[in-house]
Design a protein around this nucleic acid. Structure first.
Length: 250
DNA sequence: CCATTAAATTCAA
DNA sequence: TTGAATTTAATGG
């Protein structure tokens, strides 16, 4: 297993030297999806790709915005730091998603930070360049708009969930969110997160998450082995928060 | 919230 | 591959 990962990593490092959009096979990416419509002149090669090691922060809160990131590979957490230094995780993002999009347009500085949860490869497009592409291509603009609409929707429902749900419900909600977004990898959620990260997303403390996890474990609803969390009884968990009727896909 | 212990990961030899 | 070092989880005050 570990060996397997190492080999896979080495291979990608060696092979994936060509990060051009043309050879990218990430069809979740809006750029890739619309590449055939984008004039090659515009999208010749203005993007930069950068590799980002696990735990590395590539967007710093308050830094000036010059462009947007697309995730080519890996997962990323996006957060905002509160007054007391508390981290509020806004969302988890995976391949094909856009990071830093709120800074697009009029904003001058990032209001969020982003760090890689695993080794990641990011594509960076300058603001000017994207603007040009958006103006030229309605389909691309439309897809971007859908993305913005979804994000807004999700963030609005998150406000509700944080203000109205109990801690236990928020933790369950977080688990379900991770589950539907990242799925399972052999009985465990396909995204290793620390309890603190669950807490930061659910708006609680690490201890609360740990305690709720262990009671859920006792109730036979989840299983936990270190960072690996497994959902045993999805239906019961869904039922517990179903009365809140926030069950959005994203 | 902090301190302690148990458990799990990482790292290097 | 192993074990020592470090990080993370879990529990109780």
């Amino acid at each position: 297993m570990l060996l397997h990962q190492n080999i896979a990593l080495k291979n990608t490092r060696k092979i994936a030297t060509d990060f051009s959009c043309a050879s990218c096979n990430n069809h979740n990416c809006l750029i890739k999806k619309n590449l055939k419509n984008l004039s090659s002149a515009t999208f010749a090669n203005p993007k930069k790709t950068l590799k980002c090691k696990k735990g590395q922060q590539f967007i710093i809160e308050g830094a000036p915005v010059n462009g947007l990131f697309f995730i080519l590979k890996g997962t990323v957490k996006v957060f905002r730091t509160g007054i007391n230094g508390r981290e509020q995780i806004v969302r988890f993002a995976k391949e094909g998603e856009i990071i830093g999009h709120r800074g697009f347009g009029t904003e001058e500085y990032y209001s969020i930070g982003a760090i890689a949860l695993q080794d990641a490869v990011l594509c960076y497009f300058s603001k000017n360049h994207l603007q040009k592409a958006l103006l030229e291509n309605p389909q691309f603009s439309y897809d971007m708009m859908l993305f913005y609409a979804n994000e807004l929707n999700r963030s609005e429902s998150k406000v509700k969930s944080i203000s109205q749900m109990t801690v236990r419900e928020r933790v369950i909600d977080t688990l379900l969110y991770i589950h539907r977004k990242f799925g399972n990898l052999r009985d465990y959620l396909n995204l290793p997160l620390s309890r603190k990260e669950y807490a930061d997303y659910a708006g609680t403390t690490e201890e609360q998450v740990i305690r709720i996890f262990s009671t859920l474990k006792k109730e036979g609803l989840i299983s936990a082995k270190g960072k690996k969390i497994g959902i045993v009884n999805l239906q019961v968990l869904k039922n517990e928060i179903s009365e809140h009727s926030y069950y959005l896909d994203s």
